[in-house]
Structure formats: C-alpha cells, structure tokens
Design a protein around this nucleic acid. Structure first.
Lengths: 200, 200
DNA sequence: TCGTCAGTAGACCGACCGGTATATCGTCGC
DNA sequence: GCGACGATATACCGGTCGGTCTACTGACGA
C-alpha cells in the first residue's frame, strides 16, 4: 500500500488523477505543479492520490509511461498502414511524429522536458524512464533500417534520431514551422532517396 | 533599484551570485533551485541578491544571457580560425558545439531546459530570451550558408538547425555517444559534400 | 566630512511544498 | 452481516518558497 502496484488497472479516481496530472505536468512542467493542484483538478483528495500512487515521483513516472504508451500506439498504428519491407516505413516515423505533435505536443517531448528538471539523486526513477524511452525509440529506428536493408542500420538510426529529436525540440521552441516535414526530407536524403516529399 | 539596470557592470557580489546561480540552475534546473540556496552558495545575503537582480526571474534571464554570451564567444572564436568563404565554416559550428558541450554542457542546452519549465503567464521573460537565442542561432547558420554560396540558405540552415538541436538534446539525454560528430557528418551530406570527417 | 553605495546580518511575511493522520461513508462480494 | 475497498473530508506536519524589511558597516568620492 505504500507502493501501489504500477501494473494494476487504475480505479476511476486514479485515472482522473493521472489525466489531470498529465495535462498539468505537460503544460507547466513538473516542479511547477503541486500535488494539491493535481488533486483539486481531478476532483479528488490528496489522500486518494497518495493511496493510489504513493508519491509524486511515482505519479510523474506514471505520467511519462502513459504518454509514451499513447505515442507508441500512434506510431505503431501508422506503421501498420505502410507495407512491410522498405524505407517508406522509416520515413513514416516522421509522418507519425508530425501528426502526433500537431495534435498532442505543442510543447515538445515530455521525456526531454522531464529530463530538463531532473537530476541524479532526485528523480532517479524519472531519469531511468526517459532513458528507456529514448533507447526504445532509437532501437525502433534501427529495426526499421535493418528491415529496409539500409547499410549500417545502427549508424543510420542515430542520424535519424538526431533529426527526430531536433524536430520535436523545434516544435517546443517554436524556432520555425513544420520541423518534422523538414526532418523527413533530410531523412530521405540520409537514406539515399530522392526527396519523395509525401507530406504536403 | 526595484529593477536594476541589466546592462550595468556587475558588482563583485553580483558576479558571485550569477556564477552560483548559473551552476545551480544548469545542474539542477530552475524550479528546483531556491534563492536562499543561491545566496548561500554565493556567500551573499538574499538582500544583496534582490538589490542586484530584482527578482528570481530576472536572475534566470541574466543566467541564460551570460551562458549564451559564453557560447557565442566560443563559437565566434572557432569560426575565426576557419578561412572565410566556404562550407567548412558551416561545419565548424558543429566542431565548436562538440568542444563546447564536452567542456560545459553535459546536461544539454540551457535554453531548451529553461523552456521546458516555463509557460506563458509565468516566465514570459524567459520564453522571450530563449526564443531570441534560437533565432540568433538559426540566423547565423543561414548567414554562413549564404556566405558559402549554398543554394536555398534558409532551408538548409533549418535542416542544419535540426541536426544541431538534436545533437545537443542527445548530449543531455545520453542516448548515444558523440552526437555532434554524427551530426556534423550528416550536415556535410546535407551540404552536398563527401563526408570530410575532420573530427577524429 | 558628509553622502552615497555595496554589502552583511538576520528577522519576518504569507503562501505553498510533499506527505501523513484520523475518521466517515457507500458499495460491493462473501 | 461483515469486512475489504475506493473514496471522501479535513486537519495537520515540518520545511521551503519568493520576497521584504530594518539596522548596521565599510569604503570611496566630492
């Protein structure tokens, strides 16, 4: 009870807490949001919040996991619509990222943002979670490169990861418009394609 | 006195405050650091801190400006060593970024990190400062591209900016090693060069 | 010599922080 | 009928937050 099972299905109140926390953490940052505010936004008492999640840090990790799960579902659904062997599936990652960021991520990547306000000794669980998410992402790119028969898939995946990370940060910073479209065309060049420019 | 002149030279105590704040803000994030801790680390009372900077937010802006000024000085010094017309000067930005990040930036870009914990309505001055820094950076890349006779310098600068931002974020996240070396070789390809690979 | 200014020392403010406590209630399943 | 459970309400904890205040010291310049 001090550390509730993170794999257990969420009670209705716990779900409301997680939803409220997700929105507040993403919009304002983690340190700027207090547990009192989360509880109030969820229409729940602090007692319930602590009964369900155990600590603020555990709630932060739950937020990061839930958000990443949504992104992966969106990404995998996009990939499912692209026939299996080929570089088009690699580029589809950038299409998925663009539609995702337009709809859900005006402030960039929750993992990157969370990492920006965590440091070793305070927030170790958060650091571990964001590292795992980024490792998964670069691993997926490598898998897609291998599947497409790209030479040096690991190296290429890292190059693509730079473009992906740069684009999502640029979304958050607002440095210029439609960074994922641009990232996609550079990615196509990296893969040795003539820019197929599938996005408008 | 309520709002000290930001252009005035810093008194010795103010400099110590800024130095202490810079280290703490960068290492732990802005919200996680209190003014009491900064004053203590600087060997200064809170009174002095507020006399010199007026508010925590103003101190944050001063921190971002000072750090960016150091980066620009490092970058411009690096560029001074590369003969004037040519794509080598564009790529030198990545060399400068790699040496800078190795020495000063294990946690990535202070502007990106600051942006991650700011939101409109609280931290507007911070948001304005980080936007200005990123605009300057992409503008410099465009200038270097123009100078080198690159076609479509604005578009190319944005592609390079994606690589630059992706690399500095990857430094902070620790996703893989030496992201700037990889970014540089992709940048060379973007510029239409055979990878000259000037970094070891 | 008299201000002015940088600085120290330290008390104080209300608000908020993450987290815990006790006690009560309704709805289930056994 | 009774306990387990989800949830409520409310009060409380020590500590920290950003920020202000009065009072004093020391140095430099007109």
């Amino acid at each position: 009870m001090v550390t509730p099972d993170p794999a257990a299905p969420l009670t209705p109140a716990a779900q409301r807490v997680l939803d409220a926390a997700s929105e507040l953490f993403y919009e304002r940052g983690i340190h700027a949001v207090g547990v009192d505010g989360i509880a109030e936004a969820a229409g729940v008492t602090k007692k319930t919040l602590y009964d369900r999640f155990g600590s603020k840090e555990a709630l932060v990790v739950a937020y990061l996991r839930a958000r990443d799960a949504r992104w992966r579902a969106h990404l995998l659904a996009t990939l499912d619509r692209v026939p299996s062997p080929g570089t088009a599936r690699v580029l589809a990652v950038f299409d998925a990222a663009e539609s995702w960021s337009t709809a859900n991520s005006p402030r960039g990547c929750s993992a990157i943002n969370a990492r920006a306000e965590s440091f070793p000794g305070d927030g170790d669980a958060v650091l571990a979670e964001v590292a795992a998410q980024k490792a998964w992402q670069v691993g997926l790119l490598a898998d897609l490169c291998r599947e497409a028969g790209v030479r040096e898939p690991e190296d290429t995946a890292r190059a693509l990861m730079l473009l992906y990370e740069g684009a999502i940060v640029t979304v958050g910073m607002g440095t210029f418009d439609r960074p994922f479209a641009r990232a996609r065309s550079v990615a196509a060049a990296v893969l040795g394609l003539d820019d197929p420019s599938p996005t408008a």
